[in-house]
Nucleic acid binder design. Structure first.
Lengths: 131, 131
DNA sequence: CTAACTATGTCGTTTAACGACATATCAGTA
DNA sequence: TACTGATATGTCGTTAAACGACATAGTTAG
């Protein structure tokens, strides 16, 4: 409980439901703010998952509490070189950035493995009689 | 709406949640009664999914209504040769058998494909930065 | 006899998702 | 200037599937 980074993923957190799964996947590459997650989930799911803001901000609050994600300390834009464009007029308005914790990365990984196992089981089961 | 066998799978029915998915998978090979589904789901999921009877019979009622499964017409035991052991004391007691409809088979297939797509997307996403 | 297993079912609670609504800034254009 | 559409964050009430607890009863084995 003290060091969350090495904690085992409790079974209550999985399976992730589709919206939550895609939110975590959207954050897997780099931190994003809410609206960016919303758009990225739509892209990643090829238009199949369109989050309502109710789902999004509800999920973000829950995931924060579960320490699956955390608020990014620095809200200013960060380019590839790591320098912050603080002086430029890039920052449009209040944007809250979220990122996966190490624990969150493990939760995502566990859920991906779960799906892999299920798919293997399913093709085994469905294949048996199919021949 | 008239011929359910050729109906497209409506998006409301998918994603299947884990218990429902395994119930359908348990019925994919042959018809089963409730308790047999319960035990088979436990086996198929390698002990990870242990259905409460509340979940099971709730899901069965819903799936019947959605025409994903149907009650099997003949409730008596059927061996591999197809003959019924009606006279023997094999029939223990009231057993209600359920089987997948053609539509239900399609629902299961759609959900398996959905997971396959998600897994492909996930490994693509996670692989990008990993190198 | 009694405990474990087979077998079906109900009911109240929890929780994630969902849809509707609300608010505000910014960019482009009619 | 006024309006529209995109960006951006948030609340709130409702729905639906799962969950846990409870209830009932026949069967099997020690």
């Amino acid at each position: 409980m003290i060091n969350q980074e090495f904690e085992e993923v409790p079974p209550e957190l999985t399976p992730l439901r589709e919206p939550t799964f895609f939110i975590l996947l959207a954050l897997s590459k780099k931190r994003k703010h809410g609206y960016a997650i919303l758009k990225n989930v739509e892209t990643l799911s090829e238009g199949r998952v369109i989050l309502s803001t109710g789902t999004l901000y509800g999920a973000l609050a829950r995931l924060l509490e579960q320490r699956v994600i955390r608020k990014s300390a620095d809200d200013s834009e960060e380019d590839s070189s790591g320098s912050k464009s603080r002086s430029s007029i890039t920052v449009v308005r209040e944007r809250k950035y979220y990122e996966l914790t190490q624990f969150g990365r493990r939760v995502l990984e566990v859920d991906i493995n779960r799906m892999g196992t299920i798919l293997a089981t399913a093709s085994r089961e469905l294949g048996k009689e199919g021949i």
